[in-house]
């Protein structure tokens, strides 16, 4: 087991290169005696889409929450544009630049769908009221949610709520977007649509994305870098093609799950 973990392809370099927008160095986090993140280090390049993969319960959500400061961590550093963002006053530039898609959506349930889109726009206060309205409507349209704009989140299906959560995060044209399972619970067509939208918007506005997902095949297609978490450590960090080239069953079972299922049932 240990031999496998140390079998990393690329050890992330300790000093971030200038093009790295966000870097996580030696992050450790435990809940009581349970150590969830043991030593997590990786870099997110400017304008890239980094997919974070890993089995359920390895601490992907905890990692994202630590990055934005929703959870305090025990040790390590988080750098944004080369500056430490460990404590609240220094975290402000990161928070200003980033949006977050929560795993359980965190929609404002006493506001309508349209209001949910307008709240982050108003908080920025950069656009005029009619421009905010137009922008929210546009993105709702692209997410096939325009008919629902006067409904409340509780009246939407699970997949619609997820799409609303993604739309709400993207409406402010953020520089960095942290997606915690943006496609969980979507049908294959909608799942593709969400990934397509993330990539298209990413090309338009050049944001940097950190995507936690269980859709390995899709992640391999859309991302520029794969970070694979296992047992609280980064077990792999590198390009999608390097990930695909991995022979180790630890990776291949996870990556080629359909073949693995077929084989085990044969």
């Amino acid at each position: 087991m240990n031999a496998m973990v140390s079998d990393k392809i690329t050890t992330p370099d300790p000093i971030p290169a200038p093009e790295e927008l966000l870097s996580v160095q030696g992050l450790k986090k435990s809940f009581g005696t349970k150590q969830v993140l043991q030593d997590v280090s990786f870099h997110v390049p400017h304008g890239g889409i980094v997919a974070i993969l890993g089995r359920s319960g390895t601490g992907k959500s905890v990692l994202l929450r630590c990055i934005v400061g929703l959870l305090p961590y025990d040790e390590g550093q988080i750098l944004f544009r080369g500056k430490n963002v460990d404590t609240p006053p220094f975290r402000a530039p990161l928070l200003k630049a980033c949006s977050y898609v929560f795993q359980h959506n965190a929609l404002f349930d006493s506001s309508t769908v349209l209001e949910n889109m307008l709240i982050p726009l108003r908080a920025r206060g950069e656009l005029s009221e009619s421009a905010q309205f137009q922008k929210a409507k546009d993105l709702l349209g692209r997410m096939e949610l325009e008919d629902a704009s006067n409904r409340f989140p509780a009246e939407l299906s699970g997949g619609m709520q997820k799409r609303l959560a993604v739309a709400r995060a993207l409406v402010t044209d953020p520089e960095v977007v942290l997606f915690d399972e943006p496609t969980a619970g979507l049908d294959p067509i909608r799942r593709n649509a969400v990934f397509e939208m993330i990539v298209k918007l990413q090309r338009e506005s050049r944001f940097t994305a950190l995507v936690v997902t269980h859709d390995v095949q899709e992640a391999l297609i859309v991302s520029s870098r794969i970070v694979w978490l296992d047992a609280g450590c980064v077990a792999f960090s590198g390009t999608p093609s390097a990930f695909e080239a991995q022979e180790d069953p630890k990776f291949s079972l996870f990556r080629d799950n359909l073949q693995a299922l077929k084989q085990s049932l044969r």
Binding site: L70, I119, A123
Partner: peptide, 8 residues
């Protein structure tokens, strides 16, 4: 948490 992250 979502409000706080939006800067509100």
């Amino acid at each position: 948490d979502a409000l706080e992250l939006m800067g509100i």
